[in-house]
Design a protein around this nucleic acid. Sequence first.
DNA 1: ATTATTTTGTGATATGCATCACATTGTATA
DNA 2: TATACAATGTGATGCATATCACAAAATAAT
Lengths: 225, 225
Amino acid sequence: MQTDCRNCPFKTKATSMLSECSLDQLSSNHLELKLKKGDSIIKQGTYSTNVVFLRTGLAKIHIAGPYTEQIVKMVNAPSYLGLPTTFGSKINQYSVTAVSDAEVCFIDLEVFQNILDENKEFTREIIQEFCKNELESFHRCANRTQKLIRGNMADAILDFADKIFKADSFVLPLSQVEFANLVDTSRESVSRVLAEFDKDGIIKVNGRQIDILNKKSLIMVSQNG
Amino acid sequence: MQTDCRNCPFKTKATSMLSECSLDQLSSNHLELKLKKGDSIIKQGTYSTNVVFLRTGLAKIHIAGPYTEQIVKMVNAPSYLGLPTTFGSKINQYSVTAVSDAEVCFIDLEVFQNILDENKEFTREIIQEFCKNELESFHRCANRTQKLIRGNMADAILDFADKIFKADSFVLPLSQVEFANLVDTSRESVSRVLAEFDKDGIIKVNGRQIDILNKKSLIMVSQNG
DNA sequence: ATTATTTTGTGATATGCATCACATTGTATA
DNA sequence: TATACAATGTGATGCATATCACAAAATAAT
């Protein structure tokens, strides 16, 4: 597909400053796709030389662990996906799946690399992104294993509210099984703890609709393990 | 301290290809230090605008979790430390401490940024490094929480052997408390499981001296949770 | 050498949560 | 509209492992 990236309304800050030359190269070397909820964006174990730009929508990054599928991260647009894979082994080390309808652009790695080489601002933004991710994963590592399930679930709910939806009412984009895989627990515990939170008046649960009623309590729970 | 980085024997691949100009800049803008085991390299919560190049030695990256200190990663030389902090908030988000004698260079962030801007090869190497780290943290995330303690301890021992020491006999650079913080368990469990592994003839434990006797068994254990 | 302090070994107990089992509801499919 | 299948709710049970409590050993300090 041939779209002019100059007019892409989903550019990140740094992409807006790409040189004309780079924008041209990008325009003529990317494949734009509209995806539906549940569609696979990157498949673990398959070969790939593309970087994926998530223009719109929400996705989950997940890995086949030794026993179950583990969701390691939720990502919302705009964001670049698949860099670790393409810069590394070329075999995807994880899967990415849309959990909402989404639009993505597949960019050839070589083109992406050229753009990096020729646009310092863009490179900085990418590196910053990596830095942020690394810190996040450190914190996740330090939290997840020390807190009890209630704490981790509170964290996850707060993350959805603050980082993903930027609202205290939202529809969970995950089933309880997926939620469990994100929070490192069992499906049953997710069900039970959600019910507890509801009973305690911290959140209101209605199917997958979640309304945070008492954010302070939720934060308290997240801090008490 | 004024040393000529041109002759530094600890350069990484890409650093060897830095432009003359960049090497000059680096030479006249870094502080070289010799550290002893236990010395702090980066302190969580303090302000910093330095990137640290770990020339020689072994370090641990650790974070104050909600309850205990958590070791999120072991790093051996040569390696750059502190990038996520300096590119992000300038307040160190984690601590780094030498667990062996070590040599480090403190490089001003501005200088480091200039070098990134002017040396594509170097930038690529740094990005590759980030990619590798991200993958590692994903895998850690997917493993740690699904495996039982025996599996995680086997993993950690294999990591030390393969990634850190590149030998099947080594002296653990960590106390049992630290080891526990690395593996997300209690000090007591570390003691017990090490004794078990020894009893089963998988490894030989002598104080902190570890000899892997049966690597296949160890790998088996690591895979069975 | 002697004392103090940290590190390690090991039993007994308590508990958070996974697992199993099945009922119930909700949602696609024919 | 009926039927199949997926997602959820909820009790009962078992188990891995954290925690507690000391003893023993090793290391550091005086």
